[in-house]
């Protein structure tokens, strides 16, 4: 089933890659490309023209840099919508286990504590100094865990952990 899901995503991305006539307006409009020359969303999409089967994408962390500001969709003359494509690529990479560790850590942190970054003793001390109330630990974590389980995210994360351990 996972393989079928991968193929379907790949096909959707490829369809967009086929329509793109390579004008580059997306790259010129992209705030990420403006500061990071390595990030070229047009070229990321173009690579999918030649991917025939679910590959190890080896795109490194680049697709995860997309800010989803939608400037590219706003100006794309072929209505390709690279923001949406980047979501699909991220999904595909996720299924392949190609997730930036910082992103994975953030997700785990959320599952564990309900927060993106951990509450450290330094944070607590600082809050005390500023007369801010103490942070209650584990707010709504149980509910969050339920959601993550129901949506299947937990299973996905777990199985990847397994794979990494065995491989």
């Amino acid at each position: 089933m996972e393989q079928g899901e991968k193929l379907r995503k790949l096909k959707e991305i490829k369809r967009k890659a086929l329509i793109c006539f390579q004008c580059g307006v997306c790259v010129g409009s992209c705030p990420v490309a403006f500061v990071n020359e390595k990030y070229n969303p047009r070229r990321i999409l173009r690579n999918f023209l030649f991917n025939q089967s679910p590959p190890q994408l080896n795109l490194s962390n680049l697709p995860w840099l997309c800010l989803h500001c939608y400037a590219c969709l706003e100006r794309c003359p072929q209505n390709i919508g690279l923001s949406e494509v980047m979501f699909k690529i991220q999904h595909l990479q996720f299924l392949n286990g190609e997730i930036p560790s910082s992103f994975l850590n953030a997700v785990k942190q959320i599952i564990k504590t309900g927060r993106v970054s951990p509450v450290t003793p330094i944070t607590e001390r600082r809050r005390e100094q500023l007369n801010l109330p103490k942070i209650e630990t584990e707010t709504g974590v149980e509910e969050l865990k339920k959601i993550i389980k129901e949506t299947g995210l937990k299973k996905l994360l777990f199985s990847q952990e397994e794979e990494k351990r065995s491989g």
């Binding site: 004008c23 307006v25 010129g28 047009r42 100006r75 003359p77």
Partner: peptide
Amino acid sequence: GKPAEISENPLTKNLTIYCEDLGLG
């Protein structure tokens, strides 16, 4: 390359074009 946007220098009224040059990437 299709230019993404143009901005104007309000003093000189010159224009700056931002565009990906596909030849250069």
